[in-house]
Amino acid sequence: MNLTLRVWRQKDANDPGKMVEYPANNIIPDMSFLEMLDVVNEGLIAKGEDPIAFDSDCREGICGTCSLVINGVAHGGQRGTTACQLHMRFFKDGDTITIEPWRARAFPVLKDLVTDRGAFDRIVQAGGFVSVNTGGTPDGNAIPVGKVESDLAMDAAACIGCGACVAACKNASAMLFVSAKVSHLSLLPQGKVEKNQRVLSMVKQMDKEGFGNCTVTGSCEAVCPKEISLNFIARMNREYGMATLKGADIKGRSGD
């Protein structure tokens, strides 16, 4: 099939950027969306033009690297699917497809469709962990965890940190991402010890990075390739409230 792409091109972080149209011809329905872009890029390189820069790595929906807004929807609108697992059979011959990067102040564009999501790493560095050193840990079975809590923690832990939630949110809020990590750890006995400190530190860093506030529209949940539930945001709000009341001290804390 033959398609028309409208792609965001931006030379570097300082370039204002613009949409550019490219034909994508002889596309096979079995191609993944990224393979379709590979084909277009091969054509551009052959003509000596700069190929479209986009992020991808595992191409099997688990690493969270790929990050495209396709026709206005983060990851393209197939439920529970990353852009790398979206296949061309969901498009029709003659379609025009618009491709943009994640758009959020906290995720600056580096080039074309590539953004800097370092803000997510810094939120985890602020407290998204259990403070244990290597060695000296008790036997794995010394800490029983109920299957229900364990399964729920796994639901939250499944987040791949792609940032689609931020890209979909009209406020560019990172609440779904942060709440998934906060919930994963506070649901488990290993993570309960530090739960007040953790939620305060992570939210503080989230605000510092320039993410917007949550107005519970649910757009994040709708695009999440791992279908992380909005309920985790409610859980985090509750935890945050409790932690604030208890007044845990987060001054000078860098996660020890």
């Binding site: 259990v130 244990v132 840990t137 800490i143 364990s150 796994m154 750890l185 488990l188 290993q190």
Partner: peptide
Amino acid sequence: DQCVAQGVPFAREYGGLL
């Protein structure tokens, strides 16, 4: 042991063990 202590959500039986 190390991974459990870090909060890796390994699959559990109903009794809470791994």
